[in-house]
């Protein structure tokens, strides 16, 4: 991969980031992670308090790339057919027509995914895994670019169905937006005085650029030593105290791809240890299951990952 290709892909990502930044001020780190997940071809799980701008973020991303965007609000009475689509009987023609559900889109925002019943959750998650939907014998494929941003509300616990651990693997990254610094919040208030900035967003890169970007991410070089480092980190979660179920090899795959995306975002053609350490916790933490007893001692998956990273000597 030549230097120009690297630079062009890096430019693509930077342009999108700046564009989104216009709307979401003070969230540069979250925007970086979002783009990393997007470029590496994985999906994102956002766990955040209500009102921090999750929908705005997804919309801004979609608008920056000029792609289709749809949003599903999950409720306890949501049916799988509400997501995937339903075969409607047309009485006039005496035949069934398949009306595609909101999942047939490029960027999908699934709000409060833990509110729906497990049956509905698995419908979405299976579709994410397969990139296609089978209804009554017919298979409908998604577009090339299919990116899901699922959100969870950590505060409401009543009436929620937490995502099953085995399905958490579907999400490449999990992170949160959080509240911004006071200066940023003031700036946000000022910017939204007349109209919402999202209405002024326009596309800055094309779909081809994005496809090229995804292709280039896979070409980023990574040395064997760093692959071993990644495997060591993931392997350490399998025996760490306080973890009941460690991360699977799927985590290692996701981490490599994410590290490559980070390298490309920084304008480099190869991965260095800093890239790995930057997103390791976000890639691995949600795939582990904490021992319930340990959880009540205040241990979180992120803290265990932090300890693991501090224990393993980094290649230098």
């Amino acid at each position: 991969m030549t230097e120009e290709i690297i630079q062009s892909s890096s430019e693509t990502m930077k342009k999108v980031a700046e564009n989104i930044e216009k709307v979401m001020k003070g969230q540069s780190s979250a925007i970086r992670k979002l783009l990393v997940a997007f470029a590496s071809g994985g999906h994102v799980l956002l766990e955040d308090f209500p009102g921090t701008g999750k929908t705005t973020l997804a919309k801004a991303l979609a608008l920056s790339i000029n792609m289709k965007f749809s949003r599903i609000q999950f409720t306890p009475d949501l049916l799988p057919s509400d997501i995937l689509g339903v075969s409607v009987f047309d009485q006039g023609q005496q035949s069934f027509h398949f009306h595609k559900g909101p999942i047939f889109t490029n960027i999908l925002l699934s709000d409060e995914i833990n509110r729906a019943s497990p049956r509905t959750q698995s419908a979405l998650l299976e579709a994410m895994a397969e990139n296609q939907v089978s209804i009554e014998g017919t298979t409908y494929r998604f577009d090339d670019i299919f990116f899901v941003i699922a959100t969870q509300n950590p505060v409401e616990f009543r009436g929620t169905y937490p995502l099953p651990e085995a399905q958490m693997d579907r999400f490449a990254l999990k992170f949160s937006l959080g509240y911004v610094a006071p200066e940023q919040e003031v700036a946000m208030l000022s910017s939204q005085e007349v109209r919402h900035p999202i209405e002024d967003i326009s596309a800055c890169v094309s779909v081809e650029d994005v496809l090229q970007l995804r292709h280039n991410v896979k070409k980023v070089r990574i040395s064997d030593e760093l692959k071993r480092y990644i495997v060591d980190i993931v392997g350490a979660t399998r025996g760490a105290p306080g973890i009941q179920l460690g991360a699977s090899p799927r985590a290692s795959l996701a981490l490599i791809k994410a590290a490559q995306a980070v390298a490309l975002l920084n304008g480099g053609g190869f991965v260095v240890p800093e890239h790995i350490q930057e997103i390791a916790a976000h890639v691995i933490a949600h795939r582990t299951v904490i021992d319930p007893q340990a959880r009540f001692s205040g241990v979180t998956a992120e803290s265990i990952l932090d300890d693991i990273i501090k224990k393993i000597p980094v290649p230098a």
């Binding site: 260095v272 800093e274 980094v314």
Partner: peptide, 10 residues
């Protein structure tokens, strides 16, 4: 000195 887990730029 560098801590063993610290990458170089950090």
């Amino acid at each position: 000195g560098r801590q063993k887990w610290e990458p170089l730029t950090v």
